[in-house]
Every structure is written in structure tokens, then in C-alpha cells.
Write a protein that binds this DNA or RNA. Structure first.
Length: 283
DNA sequence: ATGCCTGAAGGGTTCAGA
């Protein structure tokens, strides 16, 4: 089962990147963030194209800002839009949608930015994270939190730690809030697999930051132990950040082995080229 | 240049993003 997460920075502006990417990477579950559209606009924009690709959709949008979704072709049940009991700014925003996909509780999250340390928005971010912590702590054994957490977990996750001192995304309270999520048993599966590598998921559009690989790693797949044990690949799809009209974030892709009990939801047929030739195709 | 790019809303500019 392949799970991916991607902050698309306006799904309306990203349709011509999103659909070819789905065809190429063929994820079974996709968590999207920063849709910047209403539920109605999302369905109008992508409903048919996603259905044709076999995806069911759980979308939690709002006009102009935020907005999250889960696409799944391994089942989509127990859909919950929003963070129950969570704070607003001042009203609740569309920053979380949850569903069960292939036996795993999946949460697509877009954590508040925080803007400036100690600002109202920063306090909102910390409160939001604490409510997410409570939700995860009460969650099932098999769960993943996927999305844009707007926190660089460690200094190695920003291109220049000195440049970020005093900035949001790297402060001790934010990192402590992320650690609280880890304390529930969630593991950062990309960092676990690549402990020392330079890995970023976001690069500012300005000043050639992507070209120079000056970025941050703020998009994470956090998996509970039973799911983390199944991870066979975990990587950042930098190709999706290249070319014309990219998001400023790249997708994170994680491949899981089958669950020990074999419960992976509906079986996904293998690519037809394998079935036809009966051998591994040439790259 | 102290918001360098991009997106959205709304209106000929401002805010937000990380």
C-alpha cells in the first residue's frame, strides 16, 4: 500500500500537476493540504477525474485558504472533517480530515503556520497541536498523521539553522509539541529511514531556493509502531517540485508491506504490463 | 530588495505563506 502526502498550494492551480502525478506514482492513499477551495469547488474541479482513477474522496475545504483532503482507492470510511474541540482563529479552519483507509486511521493535517513566535497565531498553533495530540492519543493502534506540520523537527531539517533562530517552525515549544505526538508512539518514517541525509520538502519560490536546494523538511508522515514496522520505502518526490507550475512543497511517499493479518482493504490489481509479460519490466 | 515568488480577494493593492 502506497501512502502519499502533498501540500499542493491551491488545488485549482495544481490540477495539471496533480493528475499526471497520480498516474505516475499511483498512490493508494493521498493526503492533500492547502486546497484553497470549498468542498463544492473541489468536487467540481476533480470529482470525475478522481473517480475515473478509482479514488474515493473525503474533502474538508473552505474558500481561499487552508483545506485538506484524503483520496483513497483502498476504502474510505469513518470520515471526520475537522479537529473536534480544536481552537479557531477565531473560527475553526479546515485543517484536518480523518478517515479509515485499508485498515489504517489516516489523518491529513495542515498545522497552523504560527507566523511570529509568541503571537496570537503562534499560540493558536500550539493549542491546535495539543488538541491533535489528544486525538492521536485516543486513536487506534494503526494510524498515520500525514501532512504539513509547519515545524522542522530538528536543525538538520532546515538549510541554515542559524538563519532560523527566533523564527517560527523551529522554536522549542513547537518542537516540544511535535515531540508530544511522538510520545504517543508515532514515528517520523522518512527520518527513521534516512537518519543523516539532507532531506527537504519545502523550498521558497523566491531566489532560486529549490535550484540551490535551500529548503525545510516540514511535511511528515508520522506512523504508529505497527504501521511503521511495515514501511519498505519512504522518500520525498522532488521531481514534483520541478518544471512548470509546481507547488512550493514536494510530496512525501511511503510504501507499506501488507498487514500481518492481510487486511489491506480491496486488492489493487498490479500494472497490466507486468501481468502481460510475466516479468519485471525494464526501466 | 529587508516579501526576491505565488495565490487569492478584490479592486488598481493587500494579505498570507514558512
Amino acid at each position: 500500500m502506497r501512502i502519499a502526502t502533498w501540500n499542493v498550494n491551491s488545488v485549482k492551480q495544481r490540477v495539471d500537476r496533480l493528475l499526471p502525478w497520480l498516474d505516475e506514482r499511483a498512490p493508494d492513499v493521498v493526503c492533500l493540504q492547502e486546497l484553497k477551495v470549498t468542498d463544492e469547488a473541489f468536487h467540481h474541479l476533480l470529482g470525475d477525474a478522481l473517480a475515473a482513477r478509482g479514488y474515493q474522496v473525503a474533502v474538508h475545504g473552505q474558500p481561499s485558504w487552508n483545506g485538506v483532503a484524503i483520496l483513497s482507492r483502498v476504502g474510505l470510511t469513518d470520515i471526520v472533517a475537522g479537529l473536534p474541540g480544536g481552537p479557531g482563529f477565531p473560527d475553526q479552519e479546515a485543517r484536518l480530515v480523518s478517515a479509515t483507509c485499508g485498515g489504517i486511521a489516516v489523518r491529513s493535517v495542515y498545522v497552523p503556520n504560527g507566523r511570529v513566535p509568541d503571537s496570537e497565531h503562534y499560540r493558536y498553533k500550539l493549542e491546535w497541536l495539543e488538541t491533535l495530540h489528544e486525538l492521536v492519543a485516543a486513536g487506534p493502534a494503526d494510524q498515520v498523521v500525514c501532512g504539513d506540520v509547519n515545524i522542522a523537527p530538528a536543525d538538520q531539517d532546515v538549510f541554515d539553522p542559524a538563519a532560523y533562530v527566533g523564527q517560527t517552525h523551529v522554536t522549542a515549544p513547537e518542537r516540544a509539541a511535535l515531540q508530544r505526538l511522538h510520545d504517543t508512539g508515532l514515528r517520523d518514517v522518512v527520518r527513521d529511514r534516512w537518519p543523516e541525509q539532507r532531506i527537504f520538502t519545502y523550498w521558497d519560490y523566491r531566489a532560486g531556493m529549490f535550484h540551490k536546494d535551500l529548503g525545510m523538511r516540514i511535511d511528515l508522515v508520522l506512523a504508529s509502531d505497527p504501521v511503521a514496522e511495515r514501511v519498505r520505502a519512504a522518500w520525498v518526490d522532488r521531481q514534483a517540485r520541478k518544471g512548470k507550475g509546481p507547488s512550493d512543497h514536494a510530496p512525501v511517499i511511503v510504501d507499506l508491506d501488507e498487514a500481518p493479518d492481510g487486511d489491506i482493504g480491496p486488492v489493487v490489481p498490479p500494472p497490466s504490463r507486468i501481468a502481460k509479460t510475466g516479468r519485471i519490466p525494464q526501466a
